[in-house]
């Protein structure tokens, strides 16, 4: 009985200590550890915010089995950079618009952040952002990938993204005819 109580108390103190720490440790699928500020993680990721609030953050590294070390490094890097950036005026004033839900344009540093990534890293990062519920990072990475598709023909898109064409020649012709105008003017 006494022992149990003592254990409970220890648990309690550990939790308090954890709440006092201002960073969280994240563990990638290949076992590497990364530290990120708790405030930034909670603000930028709905999933991490939920884990922090729910106390399911592990001091020895919260397992994120779905995310590789390279992607997680980028996520952490992004969180740290974001913590230091000041939202631009353009972002604040964009609410005056007739559009219901316009996508926010990435800021200059965010552009640079994703521009340096290889395709592989970018795809891993977009998956990681999606998994962690990081809306803003998802926005930035999706924007980058969509930029790579814009104005390209289906052939070019297949080439850039290494996609196998699984249509028959007839099917492809049918689609082209159905939407012929979309293939000509731009």
């Amino acid at each position: 009985m006494e022992v149990d109580k003592g254990k409970g108390e220890a648990e309690e103190t550990r939790k308090v200590a954890e709440a006092d720490r201002d960073t969280v440790t994240l563990k990638s699928s290949d076992g590497k550890l990364f530290e990120v500020s708790k405030e930034a993680a909670a603000r930028l990721s709905t999933v991490l915010a939920g884990m922090i609030a729910g106390g399911s953050i592990d001091d020895n590294g919260t397992d994120l089995k779905q995310i590789g070390s390279e992607a997680l490094e980028n996520v952490v890097d992004y969180c740290n950079k974001h913590a230091n950036s000041i939202p631009s005026a353009a972002l604040i004033s964009s609410s005056i618009s007739f559009n219901t839900a316009p996508f926010k344009e990435p800021e200059e540093w965010e552009r640079k952040f994703v521009d340096r990534l290889s395709h592989d890293a970018l795809f891993d990062l977009v998956e990681a952002a999606n998994f962690l519920g990081m809306e803003r990072l998802l926005d930035v990475t999706c924007h980058k990938i969509s930029e790579m598709m814009k104005g390209k023909s289906p052939d070019q898109i297949r080439e850039v993204f290494n996609i196998k064409n699984d249509y028959t020649k007839e099917e492809l012709e049918e689609i082209r005819q159905e939407l012929a105008w979309a293939f000509y003017d731009d």
């Binding site: 598709m149 898109i157 699984d166 979309a182």
Partner: peptide
């Protein structure tokens, strides 16, 4: 969510990708 960011014509062309 990537394709949602494209202009409509690009989205239509994407139908021919796969």
């Amino acid at each position: 969510s990537i394709l949602l960011r494209l202009p409509s014509t690009s989205v239509l062309r994407c139908r021919a990708v796969c």
